[in-house]
Design a protein around this nucleic acid. Structure first.
Lengths: 188, 188
DNA sequence: ACCTGAACACCGTTCAAGT
DNA sequence: ACCTGAACACCGTTCAAGT
């Protein structure tokens, strides 16, 4: 007898919720199932694997921070806007950075920021470097945000005494050069 | 009765070996114990946790690609040399990038490259930006190398058709600017 | 379409006890 | 100093069967 009936979006929403409340380490199929009032095996009706579930979670996190590119803006401002979007989206949920970075690294999700960056870079005429530029910027942003988030969380958990760190912001005095064009990513 | 007696370096060496032959996913405490002819619990005599073991593996991988900084070289060349060292070290072992990146992210290991980069950046006069610059460069290098390694391995396993990618090298036409000073990281 | 029940093949970690 | 034996509290995934 089916006590509960969950649809795919319910599962994703609950997963985001568990992630935010208990962290990535506690987001297991069994735990998520229990939280939904369902056996773990029931989740495999919606997702072929945990990896696929986590990719959906990553996409959901990015989607929730709604973003629409301003195509009339200068290309470097467009790039900065995308970076800012990713940063905001990911910082809004516990372990958001790691989830998105992993999904992106495995190529299973989090493709929207990559495509937005490619578009922005192309609009700046950096045609040949758009793809590698987008990947670099994403590593740049995600790397720093994961850093930030890890240390922030560790500090708030009392595991690390939060010594003053040189710039919690990923952009302080830093830029990236693509083919001679300087891109400032100080979105914040 | 002790059939085998392993010292700490033996354990690390075997772990590197298992990592390279079977990948990070197969490097479990149980598997490593079996490979050493020992129960998994015996490993906890040498390491307090798997995380600590993996940190030691990361350090070992970096150590095996012996590196000595040329303090007479221009600072940007020093930076490039460190990046090249990390890249070479990590590419020499299966999943080396992920192991080192993770140890670095958790702050449990892989500190040598960070310190080398800070020193190189300081020697260039970028005092206030040395720490954040070092972290940025590391994210930059490790991010790209993990990318490379993941796709390379996936391709060689036949999981992905290796479409032509824009620059397998992390440095193609890219640089990082620290306070106006352009750092080229095209180590290769 | 969604769920149960039961199993399979694993994990990391602890700890008293052995040599 | 290093190892065993046994346990604890978990994992992801599969699959026939139910409604």
């Amino acid at each position: 007898m089916a006590l509960v009936r969950n649809h795919r979006p319910d599962v994703v929403a609950r997963a985001v919720d568990v992630l935010d409340r208990h962290g990535l380490g506690d987001l297991s199929m069994r735990r998520l199932g229990a939280e939904l009032g369902v056996r773990p095996s029931a989740l495999y009706h919606h997702f072929p694997s945990k990896q696929a579930l986590l990719a959906a979670v990553a996409d959901e996190i990015l989607l929730r921070a709604r973003f629409e590119p301003d195509l009339t803006a200068p290309w470097d401002e467009q790039v900065a806007a995308v970076c800012g979007w990713v940063r905001d989206a990911v910082l809004a949920y516990r372990d958001g950075g790691e989830v998105v970075a992993t999904a992106y690294a495995f190529g299973t999700g989090a493709m929207a920021p990559y495509e937005a960056l490619v578009a922005a870079l192309r609009s700046g005429g950096a045609d040949g470097l758009a793809e590698i530029g987008a990947r670099t910027l994403l590593h740049f942003v995600l790397g720093h945000v994961v850093d930030e988030q890890t240390h922030l969380q560790a500090a708030s958990a009392g595991a690390i005494d939060d010594a003053p760190r040189a710039g919690g912001d990923f952009a302080v005095g830093l830029g990236i050069v693509l083919d001679g064009l300087r891109v400032r990513v100080d979105a914040r």
